[in-house]
Design a binder for these strands. Structure first.
Length: 911
RNA sequence: GGGGAUAUAGCUCAGUUGGUUAGAGCACCUGCCUUACAAGCAGGGGGUCAGAAGUUCGAGUCUUCUUAUCCCCACCA
């Protein structure tokens, strides 16, 4: 029979086992909710722990920004599944109306055609093809990263049941008067030719100019000025001017209020009006009013009952409100021509460079052109109020908590939500217009109507516009589960437990889901919101499709494997903020996988042909108990950290348990015991190590599922552990009756300190030059102090002393009952022991003298600090008794150290 | 303009209600290919916790100010 060491290659080969394990998971349908796989979990769960995956846009493939966020989710859901026996992670895809439409339009443009040429029907078909391609690739990315979502529940926002939910929600809100059509200034994207919601607009600083233009006064003879200078950054909008406004108290212009001025290059005259909005100290102090193309002007126009003149078409080209030759010109081209024309007429005063921020379309990056038009709106105030209240009442918790403020600010200042988009890709608005002139009814319907409900006319047409993508996304906690029809499924999965997503969609998505949950279901859709960090490149730029700086998870998997991807993602995830990530970071994960693999390889090499015995407490040595206790501690630390979404703490605990406690100490200690000729000793040793290792594999399985699932197959069955068909459905160690050995653990820690001290003494002294042969002849004198009788018994056991000598690579450790250390020795002291290594030559010791003097100085300082504390009345009166006790113990330990150092220095003959 | 965050070792970051001598990984130095792992092991060096003031018996942690960087929201024609 081959040994496991021979079976297991020297390094993990994820390219080989990951696809195989994926097949096993798929075949067994481990992640399908409703299927029971575990023999260890007994409890019935009517309400499984549920996470709604933020459905990625089908616009493009996923990058490691997604990969990182979803890894955290999979880690949590896999942990929950192992802990509770059942858990649901609902996967999805978002049709991403505007984003996808833009991608398809780009594709069409590259083929030399356009959406208008091919028509709406063909366009929608192209968009569907796009979704099939990219959606399919995304699902493959999910799968390869090992995500344990229930693919049988995969929901796409354009699925018929989602579409029905959208219509139902729309109709209900419409009938309640919470959806209305309104004429107002909207954010218009002249490239995509659609209105945008406020959240789809980003403000960016641009370098422009502040132009001053002369508006000639009418009736010039009676005035002492010929014109009023007007400052603007957008001269081309002057064709839409309806007034010039000045501050009522501005002495320069007071006398002109009520006069008329000529709009340059345009036959019209407009009045000079007074409004306190105008700042006298900015520009020329006179402001041109263009209500149809500026939000502030729009407000002023309303105040003064001025008309609005729209001068741009949908592509932001000047319309026939502008005279020849400007009519038909693009807005930027028009600006240049206009300035030239003004200069020619002597109406151009000056221009100065001016940096200001202006709204841009988040998708097309085009400069937004405010446009006066009719759009559909959701009245948000009544929906937002209970959402804000939920945060105020702490019914909803944010991780990290600081987002609560942002949340409240937005909700308390909420604007109505513009939900209509002049796009072809998305849910068409379920509004119909009766074409019967005598009726003209406008009605909403969740089913396609054939007749007007009011006049029964069959001459009805549906609204052309589609809904904002987020109008389907905000129903995400509801629509995948069949709302409003299937109440049984909904009851099982609503509300879900946590939303894990990026903070950039806190308003667009998270807040609106809570609105929808409260509005349609009457309760919060989840009570925890975890925001993961933003993933950036090394320059600090966010991963994005347009920049092309993202890392493709598939590339990472090919180079390092999915576990390395996942491990690194968790390793880099800070408590908040941003992650800088580059390809070589995944070596961190790969190294860890290798370590884990090799630890297993070592243990398994000792297993062949052996029956694994159950753990027997009476056979356990000190280090066994210490290690088992470390397992217990780690298991609880991890569980608590996961509950609190302290992913960093959970990750750290996993790392320390496996790398430090198990590999650095456990396996090293076991090497000594496995050499033993006593079969009982080796059997105990193997039993402990396999038990601890399997538990560790389970603990870290949610994070690195592939390698753990692969390794567990090689592990012989341990009598103390039940194992289900897959590790992914086996019981999590926090639910196991793990053994606790508090006292032994402490003694094991002292042992580690002692071993480290010996190693350090040797390596930092002239002893480092000894050959390993000579070194293994060394004897260490040791005096224990400040330890309990039980600890002393543990530490002085001959087996344990041999182990410590072996780990220190010395011949022997002699425990002395008196603290009279040998002369002529290297010495180290701590709060629990003094050690000394005798030397032959005094000059070796002489060379160490400075080291001890330095040590003495330090201890004196520390001692001074503790003495200062303990002699302070304020400290003794006010500090926590436990803290005082700690300081007292610390002082006692320092005193012992001081004495030992003094003694050592005496052996040097120092004064 | 309003709000928020960050500043800790050369680099990337931990440090939960203030309480022993501030930690980890990478990088660096020294010694080791010791039969699980050189993608590793053992040991080591390196930080007046951005600056200043304050509260406190005690401050990396709390308060104020300053400086630097970043984010969000609103916007100056």
């Amino acid at each position: 029979m081959k040994t496991s060491a021979e079976i297991l290659p020297k390094a993990a080969n994820p390219q080989e086992y990951e696809p195989r394990i994926l097949r096993v998971w798929g075949k067994n349908k481990f992640f399908e909710i409703g299927k029971e796989h575990s023999k260890e979990h007994s409890k019935e769960h009517n309400k499984p722990y549920t996470i709604l995956m933020p459905p990625p846009n089908v616009t493009s493939f996923l990058h490691m920004g997604h990969g990182t966020g979803y890894t955290i989710q999979d880690w949590v859901i896999r942990w929950r599944r192992m802990r509770d026996g059942v858990a649901c992670w609902l996967p999805g895809l978002d049709h991403a109306g505007i984003a996808t439409q833009m991608m398809v339009e780009k594709q069409l443009a590259s083929e030399g055609t356009s959406k208008h040429e091919i028509g709406r029907e063909a366009f929608v078909k192209r968009a569907q093809e796009w979704k099939e391609t990219y959606g399919g690739k995304i699902l493959e990315q999910f799968r390869l990263m090992g995500f344990s979502c229930d693919f049988s529940q995969l929901t796409y926002t354009l699925d018929s049941h989602c579409s029905y939910a959208v219509r139902h929600a729309f109709v209900q809100l419409f009938n309640e008067g919470l959806i209305y059509r309104g004429l107002r200034l909207v954010n218009w994207d002249p490239v995509l030719m659609t209105a945008l919601g406020d959240e789809e607009v980003v403000n960016k600083e641009i370098n422009g100019h502040l132009y001053t233009i002369r508006y000639p006064l009418c009736n010039q003879g009676k005035q002492d000025k010929a014109f009023i200078p007007v400052a603007t950054t957008r001269p081309e909008t002057l064709f839409g001017d309806v007034a010039v406004a000045v501050h009522p108290d501005d002495e320069r212009y007071q006398s002109y209020i009520g006069s008329q001025v000529h709009v340059p290059l345009c036959g019209r005259t407009v009045p000079v009006i007074a409004d306190t909005y105008v700042k006298s100290d900015f520009g020329s102090g006179a402001l041109k009013i263009t209500p149809a193309h500026d939000p502030n002007d729009y407000e002023i126009g309303k105040r003064h009952q001025l008309e609005s003149i729209s001068i741009f078409d949908d592509r932001a080209r000047l319309n026939d409100q502008a005279p020849e030759p400007f009519c038909g010109m693009d807005r930027f081209e028009a600006r240049k021509s206009l300035i030239a024309a003004l200069k020619e007429k002597g109406l151009f005063d000056s221009s100065t460079p001016h940096r200001y921020s202006a709204p841009h379309s988040d998708r097309s990056k085009a400069l937004i052109e405010p446009k006066l038009c009719s759009q559909w709106y959701v009245k948000t105030e009544p929906l937002a109020a209970p959402v804000a209240q939920a945060a105020r009442d702490n019914a909803i918790t944010f991780y990290p908590g600081l987002w609560k403020k942002t949340w409240l600010y937005w909700l308390d200042n909420i604007q109505d939500w513009c939900i209509s988009r002049q796009l072809w890709w998305g849910h068409r608005i379920p509004i119909w217009y009766c074409q019967n002139d005598a009726c003209k009814e406008v009605f909403a319907s969740s089913e396609d109507p054939t007749r007007c409900p009011k006049c029964n006319s069959s001459h009805i047409i549906q609204e052309e516009d589609v809904l904002d993508t987020w109008f389907s996304s905000w129903l995400w906690p509801l629509s995948p589960f069949g709302w409003p029809k299937d109440t049984t499924t909904l009851e099982r999965f609503y509300p879900s437990d946590v939303i894990i997503t990026g903070s950039e969609i806190i308003f667009q998505w998270v807040a609106r889901m809570v609105m929808a949950g409260i509005k349609f279901q009457g309760t919060l859709p989840f009570n925890k919101v975890y925001f993961n960090a933003t993933v950036c490149d090394m320059k600090g730029q966010k991963f994005s499709k347009t920049l092309g700086n993202g890392i493709d998870p598939i590339d990472v998997i090919e180079q390092y494997g999915a576990d390395a991807l996942r491990y690194t993602a968790a390793h880099l995830s800070p408590v908040s903020g941003r992650i800088k990530m580059e390809m070589k970071d995944f070596a961190i994960g790969r190294n860890f996988i290798t370590k884990l693999w090799n630890g297993a390889r070592y243990l398994l090499s000792h297993c062949h042909d052996k029956t694994i015995e159950p753990l027997q407490e009476e056979s356990l040595e000190l280090w066994h108990k210490g290690l088992l206790h470390e397992l217990y501690e780690a298991s609880h630390t991890i569980d608590n950290a996961m509950v609190a979404f302290r992913m960093h703490d959970a990750h750290k605990a996993l790392y320390q348990l496996i790398w430090n406690s198990i590999c650095d100490w456990g396996i090293e200690a076991s090497k000594f015991s496995l050499k033993s000729s006593d079969s009982h000793t080796t059997a105990t040793n193997l039993s402990v190590m396999l038990y601890v290792y399997e538990c560790a594999l389970r603990l870290i399985h949610p994070l690195i599922p592939f390698v753990t699932e692969e390794l567990i197959h090689y592990f012989p069955k341990h009598p103390n552990l039940e194992r289900s068909k897959g590790l992914c459905v086996s019981l999590y160690p926090s639910q196991l009756p793990l053994l606790k050995f508090e006292k032994a653990y402490q003694s094991w820690q002292v042992s580690k300190e002692l071993i480290t001290s010996i190693r350090r003494l040797i390596q930092t002294s002239t002893l480092a030059k000894l050959s390993s042969q000579e070194r293994s002849q060394l004897h260490v004198w040791c005096h224990l102090q400040n330890v309990s009788p039980q600890a002393r018994a543990y530490l002085e056991a001959s087996q344990h002393l041999s182990l410590m000598a072996s780990l220190s690579q010395v011949a022997h450790i002699d425990i002395s009952t008196e603290d009279k250390m040998p002369p002529c020795a290297l010495v180290d002291v701590s709060s629990h022991f003094e050690i000394a290594i005798a030397l032959q030559k005094t000059e070796d010791i002489e060379s160490q003298r400075d080291v001890y003097l330095e040590k003495q100085k330090k201890v004196e300082i520390y001692l001074g600090n503790t003495q200062k504390k303990l002699s302070s009345q304020g400290f003794l009166r006010k500090a926590d008794p436990q803290v005082i006790e700690n300081v007292k113990q610390q002082q006692a330990a320092l005193e012992l150290q001081k004495q030992a150092i003094t003694k050592t220095l005496l052996t040097f003959g120092a004064s």
